[in-house]
Amino acid sequence: MTDQEILQLYRSGERDKAFRALVASYKERLYWHIRRMVLDHDDTDDCLQNTFVKAWQSLDRFRGDAQLFTWLYRIATNESLTFLSRQQTRGGHLELEAAGRLSTDPWFDGDQLQLALHRSIAKLPPKQKAVFNLRYFDEMPYEKIAQVLETSEGSLKASYHHAYEKVKAWMKEEMDAKY
């Protein structure tokens, strides 16, 4: 079902049916986007459900001048950033601890290279991490990322470039230390 069909169904009064279709369409993409931000499966599940609850609460006000895809990614990114900032407020950089626990996480299958990658990404500032993930993993065009994060394409390109260089350097450092 396309975004347009989902919205038409919702506006025709079939709200539950339309929303189920919306969750079905976006659940996996949004799950992986959030998971790469917060790393832990249970935390991701919480953030994903919060994302859909917020989408449900404000779908009435969705004007349609943005794509449903962009709008949902924005909510999911904000949920992830809120989660990360709450963790930092509670003390320490818990996302670094979460990255440290990846090697024993039952829902993580990565090798040393993957561990080095996610540990390095965890060191990025949260917003830069969002930029890096959307571009590197989702291969989202800058134009779309700019819509999701509500920022200019120019600053995004610079931010991604810096993030890419930092992650590369940290990965190399970690891999060199191991081998």
Binding site: W32, R35, R36, L113, Q114, L117, Y136
Partner: peptide, 12 residues
């Protein structure tokens, strides 16, 4: 390094 990591796919 980054390209290799990408080629390995999703580790989660």
């Amino acid at each position: 390094i980054l390209e290799l990591a990408r080629q390995e796919g999703n580790a989660f």
